[in-house]
Design a protein around this nucleic acid. Structure first.
Lengths: 233, 233
DNA sequence: AATTATTGTGACAGTTTCATGACACGGATA
DNA sequence: TATCCGTGTCATGAAACTGTCACAATAATT
């Protein structure tokens, strides 16, 4: 519950003030002065939220936001932009890059905290960090670990994401294309059939533990992850 | 409950922004750049809603909307049009084509989400994704599953669509031609008698569970799916 | 009853779709 | 540099699905 927040802000006094406010409110602050520093710090464990200054040396914050959004792992980290100008134009540019909210400088600590909590509340239900359990399959996104009936299971990155997606989207058919969009990411040019192969690899890994067929083929439509067996509904 | 939304928009940044916003709000986004792409993606599993840009290469969005409204299966998918111009004229054209709502660019994420939820709420009762139950027969379009008295039943794609159509159109006679149009799709040249064969296959699958004849032959006219038996009316 | 029109049924071949193993490429690592 | 691992693609064979036909069965008509 102790959320980690990355503060990307080049002006030291402001950065320190923010950090102070955050920690006063039970958050865990990480600081970064530049885009490069920020990128270096955005890796496991991923921060729960990023406070991003609009004006940064070496490029605008939007640039960073865009690059974060392209990565499967960082895509869902919410971003709050800090901007000096309440300029409408900037807001549009920011939303292009997938900004979740804005705080206009100067801002009060209360406002900042309120916005942060609002964003976290909104994103929390679909947060990547929640551990999942489903019919004996446990997946811990933070530890990046999967076990089936308490027996450890190691998967490649793609299989891990695929399983993660399935575990959070059970009992529903997904076409290959939808799986590509959701697991590989949009704007990735990969053959449809590639999904089959990864399905196979995931199946193999799971089945190794002598289990029912969780991943079901729905001919002509796609695949479905289900706890229900073939006969019983 | 995880709704699928198809975003048809040629400009990548806008499309990605929309996708991002949708996913932040618990929706499942599918992307399409052109009308052709959109049409290719509008098949099972059908999206729950379509966000459609007004200006698209190769024809206006209205064109796509019209064609969707002509097909039995896609007819009830709600459409929200994205338009740059708040032009009154365009709105009229759109409503002709069966548009459910408008969002004028530029729009805020909040507004977009609000409109989507409003439309879904309005349309939900007849939503395609709703599971259907009829005299012990259950069909879940989302999971792509059929059961009869809680016993799983597996059907081929055509039989599934046929049953789906019947379950949503009971107590009424349909000619072979009408069935072809609705289940196979228009512009498909297939022999009338092919319907008979698929009717037979579907009957066999259902009857395997020792059931009354849901599918009734109306000599000279076609078939009818009914809960009433032959003798009782 | 005989004839005709319509529908039921089983078989079949062509096509589509999927599972599977192999393989090559590229990045990371030692 | 050599090696390993993950990944995407392909070839192949198996299985499922589909449309059509021929003929049997049934209903309507004369």
């Amino acid at each position: 519950m102790n959320r980690q927040i990355l503060v990307v802000e080049d002006e030291a006094p402001i950065r320190e003030m923010i950090t102070f406010v955050l920690e006063q409110n039970g958050f865990n602050a990480i600081e970064a002065e530049t885009i490069e520093q920020a990128q270096a710090k955005i890796k496991e464990p991923y921060p729960d939220l990023i406070l991003l200054d609009w004006m940064l040396p070496g490029g605008t914050g939007v640039k960073l936001a865009k690059s974060l959004k392209q990565n499967e792992y960082t895509r869902s980290i919410p971003i709050i932009m800090l901007t000096a100008r309440a300029d409408e134009d900037d807001k549009v540019k920011g939303f292009d890059a997938g900004i979740d909210d804005y705080v206009t400088k100067p801002f009060s600590p209360k406002e900042l905290i309120a916005r942060i909590k609002a964003v976290i509340r909104r994103v929390a239900p679909t947060a990547l960090e929640e551990a999942i359990e489903f019919h004996g399959i446990k997946l811990d996104p933070v530890a990046h670990r999967v076990s089936i009936n308490d027996k450890n299971l190691d998967l490649g990155p793609t299989e891990f994401r695929l399983l993660h997606f399935f575990l959070t989207h059970t009992e529903r058919v997904y076409s290959r294309e939808q799986l590509l969009d959701n697991v590989w990411g949009t704007n990735v040019y990969v053959e449809d059939r590639t999904v089959d192969v990864h399905i196979r690899r995931l199946r193999k890994a799971i089945a190794g533990e002598g289990h029912e067929d969780f991943i079901q083929t729905v001919r002509g439509s796609g695949y479905r992850f289900s706890g229900k067996t073939k006969d019983r509904v």
